[in-house]
Write a protein that binds this DNA or RNA. Structure first.
Length: 598
DNA sequence: CCTGTCTGCCC
DNA sequence: ATTCTGC
DNA sequence: GCAGAATGGGCAGACAGG
């Protein structure tokens, strides 16, 4: 397939707001391809390189692409940056620059989809001294051979962000549409029966069923390219032999959230309540010999946690097995878990033995998906039982404490105790629910302090400046704010977070109006900040900000004299406080006190 | 050899 | 991670 | 409610460049 043809079809998808129509358009792309290149095509649609669980990374992103674009077009980087701030998408910037350039060279060759893909594969493999320059050159070459539309998508592929408005689920939809006929023929009996019940809607219903089928396969074999290939090779029968397999990770089940324990119990009824630990989620595979560990995003971490591997070999008695745990740094002397920032240090390539000793991991094992066969369709209670019979707990591997109840005050007490022990919150789980691989369902609901309207902490922070936005936000010229606290002693404002979550279009619009009036060309003298926003503004507006935690920061300078810098974990906007003025900004002293009281 | 910038991936 | 938006 | 796309802090590692 010519890359130009693909690009034109991608543009159609991009313009289309209705997901149903996107599905149809995507299935039309599938009609134009074959079993040899369909996997590559699917990966490109997803802006992903290879199966979800063994994706390749490029080692280049925005800055390097800007260099490449500059080198390819002769336009200096500052100009490109300016355009980026205006358009909010490097792909669009590339498209615009290429189209305004004089005629494309007559000798430029036509880009082929498979070749574009393999160029990126080649680029990904490069490393070592001079490799950034080499990678840049590959990009330059592709851009030089590209039409404006092609350039747009090459740049977006390089960024692994296609901005098509279509992703996994819609692609699965399009596969189900394409192979519907095939599925119908191999399920003829079922089809006839359904016809009686559904009449005209039978096609749509059948497609839905087929979609569910593909989705359920994807959730235990997270490789859409591979699945598409099987469909192209063997039709709907191609999925038959896909089953849950040790060493192929399962898409992790995700938790929903609700704002109060009462609401959760209303929804779930009597629940299993466990602490929510603040570490890495690890999916563990073991066949009696080898152990593999996958993160929440299915990254292979087996080499990184040798102590966890040993723990599993020592403790797990039954296999082949796939189970799930939270891995947290554990302070043996004080019998306490380390905060997340400390556990994070374990995610490393060098000095693994040294840091393992310093920050040993404890595995808190909470679920099981496989033991000599799939368990994901078994109810949680049953899974828990199987799990507890499969391994022997010890100081490095435990089962979480839990209560089984619908007594809200009792859960509240549990929650408070668990928080005081340094945990993030609690998980409430429906005892009868299956393991909802790949889905955020009300089988599990998480509850943290910051979700509660009563107990949450907020700060009133000063807007010090703002950053231009990407995509949808570029039309407002604002993607995030730089916010800070007021230091009374020094009479200055100290940055504490960037704030980009929680901004509605309405917020953005009013901020745009308000902030454009108070722009400053230089950083105001009374500001202290480790990072520079695209635009500084005079001290005037205050916003109410919710967060989960105050952390010691290497980038923000709140309380820099006392603590070397503090920042907010998971900051989000609650409200623009048009009723407050800069005098009412939360002070650094208050922040310090909140930090110490955590 | 040191430092700053960029990137990817944890949450 | 959290949150908003269009369907 | 789903699916997709905005956005956060902060850690380690790879490179570039002085």
């Amino acid at each position: 397939m010519l890359f130009l043809d693909l690009s034109k079809m991608l543009e159609e998808i991009e313009k289309e707001p209705s997901r149903l129509k996107m599905m149809t358009l995507a299935s039309q792309i599938l009609d134009k391809t074959n079993k040899k290149e369909v996997d590559v095509l699917i990966y490109l649609l997803l802006g992903q390189f290879g199966a979800t669980y063994k994706e390749i990374d490029f080692g280049i992103a925005e800055k390097t692409i800007i260099s490449a674009l500059s080198k390819a077009t002769g336009i200096d980087k500052e100009k490109i940056n300016k355009e980026l701030r205006k358009l909010g998408d490097l792909g669009l910037v590339g498209e615009q620059i290429i189209s305004s350039k004089v005629q494309k060279s007559l000798f430029s060759k036509k880009l082929i989809v498979a070749e574009v893909y393999s160029s990126f594969e080649k680029l990904a493999k490069m490393g070592g001294k001079g490799s950034i320059a080499d990678k840049t050159n590959i990009l330059v070459q592709m851009i030089n051979n590209a039409n404006p539309i092609e350039a747009k998508y090459i740049i977006r592929i390089a960024q692994k962000n296609m901005r098509l408005g279509l992703a996994n689920s819609t692609i699965i939809d399009s596969l189900s549409l394409k192979f519907l006929k095939d599925y119908k023929e191999s399920n003829l009996e079922e089809f006839e029966k359904l016809k009686e019940d559904y009449g005209e809607d039978v096609e749509r219903y059948l497609r839905y069923k087929f979609k569910e089928k593909i989705e359920s396969k994807y959730n235990i074999y997270p490789d859409l390219g591979g699945i598409a290939k099987k469909l192209f090779e063997k039709g709907s029968n191609g999925l038959r032999d896909i089953g849950i397999t040790p060493f192929v990770p399962v898409m992790p089940a995700l938790a929903e959230r609700l704002p109060s324990i009462g609401k959760i119990i209303e929804k779930l009824g009597k629940s299993i309540v466990e602490p929510k630990f603040d570490g890495f989620r690890l999916q563990c595979h073991y066949d009696g010999k080898e152990v593999k560990l996958f993160t929440r995003n299915l990254e292979d971490m087996s080499e990184i946690f040798p102590d966890a591997v040993e723990t599993i070999k020592k403790s797990v008695k039954k296999y082949p097995i796939i189970f799930e745990c939270e891995a947290i740094g554990y302070n043996e002397k004080e019998d306490k878990y380390y905060p997340f920032q400390v556990t994070m240090k374990r995610k490393r390539k060098y000095d693994i033995p040294g840091v393992s000793k310093q920050i040993p991991l404890r595995l808190v094992v909470f679920d099981i998906m496989y033991l000599k066969g799939s368990l994901i369709d078994k109810p949680l209670l049953e899974r828990k039982q199987i799990l507890e019979n499969a391994m022997t707990p010890n100081k490095n591997l435990i089962f979480p404490e839990n209560i089984y109840t619908d007594d809200v005050p009792r859960i509240q007490k549990f929650f408070e105790r668990v928080l005081s022990e340094g945990n993030e919150g609690i998980m409430l789980k429906d005892p009868n629910a299956i393991y909802t691989a790949g889905a955020r369902k009300f089988a599990w609901v998480k509850y943290k302090k910051s979700y509660s309207s009563r107990a949450k902490d907020t700060l009133d922070l000063l807007v010090m400046g703002y950053f231009s936005g990407k995509g949808q936000r570029s039309k407002f010229g604002i993607g995030a704010l730089l916010v800070g606290s007021y230091n009374e002693k020094e009479n200055r404002y100290e940055s504490i977070a960037k704030l980009g979550s929680g901004l509605t279009e309405e917020n953005l619009e009013s901020l745009q109006k308000a902030l454009s009036e108070i722009k400053e060309t230089e950083k105001p003298k009374e500001y202290v900040s480790g990072i520079n926003p695209h635009v500084w503004v005079r001290p005037k507006y205050v916003v109410e900000v919710l967060y989960d935690e105050i952390t010691k920061s290497p980038t923000h300078l709140c309380a820099k004299d006392e603590m070397g810098g503090l920042a907010l974990r998971f900051p989000r906007l609650i409200k623009i406080r048009s009723d407050k003025n800069k005098v009412q900004t939360s002070t650094t002293k208050e922040v310090l006190e909140l930090f110490k009281s955590q």
